[in-house]
Design a protein around this nucleic acid. Structure first.
Lengths: 154, 154
DNA sequence: CTTGACCTTGGACTAAGCTCCAAGGTTTAT
DNA sequence: ATAAACCTTGGAGCTTAGTCCAAGGTCAAG
């Protein structure tokens, strides 16, 4: 069992945040001491870890609360309902991964076309790298130019 | 050239949001009419599209502002600096994709083990699906149980 | 030449997600 | 047995990202 401060330290967060989560129905300590201290179990820590990870992938506390409340009352739910809810979240995640990958591709092209030397970054266009409408009439910048520039320097 | 309301409509947002972005250095209209109306160019629209996409993959307005200001003053920057900044964002994106994929894998396992029928969702554990420490001593639930249940019904 | 749909600025308001503070109770180490 | 380091509640304050409002200017149509 952890006291609130111990659990908070374990996950690098403030006790305040844990109280905030409790108030919003995300995570209640599984016990209290006679004097009223919150006591968190190993299970609570696992749930907290889940909450933190869900948050880090972009779920709001409300969405997480929904997942958590399903988990808490799972014997009352039909399996089909749980599956349905989870599949909705899965769709959201797939879409988000796809968008991130598109973004990654754009930035990577930019990084690759940006030679990384002392020369001006005039041709390192973030927009050019990311906007599809640019791509048709796009100038392709190779590092040749820079290598040439480097050659001149030598 | 678009007036503020036209551009806003084009991207399903409020004029207020565009003014907000302007105030925070993300997007200034490339012209004003004599009477002071903001006029946005095609270029401005491209930049706005970028801002919206960056936001959708989880960048804060501050981070986007940083990328945009690099774009705006790119001739003043050394190529290496731009590449450096962009590479930092790329790392962030890679990490985020990885985390999303881990989350996706967990939820997918859950969805698969959750047979989706009328039976109780007792064995559909989101935590079990997502917490690695569970996996070692994990019960594997197959849909056999349910198929059997279905068979009994017939 | 007025009506309605736009636009301007400035400032107030909201919601989410914390974060801090005050006033007091508890536990622990010296 | 007393100080330091925890904990409690309640409520205020902060940041981010908008969103709304008021008072007034502009512009095209009838």
């Amino acid at each position: 069992m952890y006291r609130i401060g111990e659990l908070a330290d374990l996950f690098n967060m403030k006790s305040d945040t844990l109280r905030y989560y409790e108030k919003h129905g995300l995570l209640s300590p599984s016990a209290r001491t006679e004097s009223g201290y919150r006591m968190y179990s190993e299970q609570d820590a696992v749930l907290l870890k889940f909450i933190i990870r869900a948050k880090s992938v972009g779920f709001t506390l409300n969405e997480i609360q929904e997942l958590v409340s399903i988990e808490m009352n799972k014997s009352q739910w039909a399996c089909a309902d749980v599956k349905g809810r989870v599949d909705i979240k899965l769709d959201k995640i797939s879409a988000q991964i796809a968008e991130l990958q598109r973004f990654q591709k754009g930035l990577k092209e930019l990084s690759d076309s940006c030679c990384g030397g002392d020369e001006s970054a005039e041709y390192c266009s973030i927009l050019e790298a990311l906007d599809d409408s640019y791509k048709e009439h796009r100038h392709v910048h190779h590092c040749d130019k820079v290598l040439h520039h480097d050659a001149e320097e030598k």
